[in-house]
Amino acid sequence: MKIASGDDVLITYALGSCVGTCIYDRGANIIGLSHILLPNKNAGDNNLYKFADTAIKELVRSMTAKGALVSRMQAKIAGGAQMFTNATIKIGENNQKAVIEQLNKLGIRIIAADLGENYGRTMECHAKDGRVIIKSFNRGLRDI
């Protein structure tokens, strides 16, 4: 999890089945990025940043502590692909659902999403204007 402001750029590389969530408060010029691996925290695992349900809550909490307001926050999400076709556990899909559910629960609007399919994505988030650029292997660059 990373938080930035000013002209900083946050990057998370090569999201596969993982989901990257970028939350932006334009008014406070604060941007945050979380990269989750799995949908729900299991008891006994203390790594909050690995799971959608705990990581997003933690990101919002930390951003609020720096002066961001939940009512102004907007989210852009990417990833959740299914990299291997025969994989029996649909981790990517479950991750997408868990992230969306958590953002809904917190009342944060999702204004852009680039999810699913079968390819990896690098996510670049700009604190200056909330722009998120998605880089992928054979689809070039895309602004979301």
Binding site: Y13, L38, M83, F84, N86, I91, G120
Partner: peptide
């Protein structure tokens, strides 16, 4: 049987990493 994927190393590894991340 084998399953295949051509992509960035991080994305390719995300499946086994998630499985073990549990």
């Amino acid at each position: 049987p084998p399953d295949i994927c051509a992509d960035m190393a991080g994305a390719v590894m995300s499946y086994p990493v998630s499985i073990f991340g549990m």
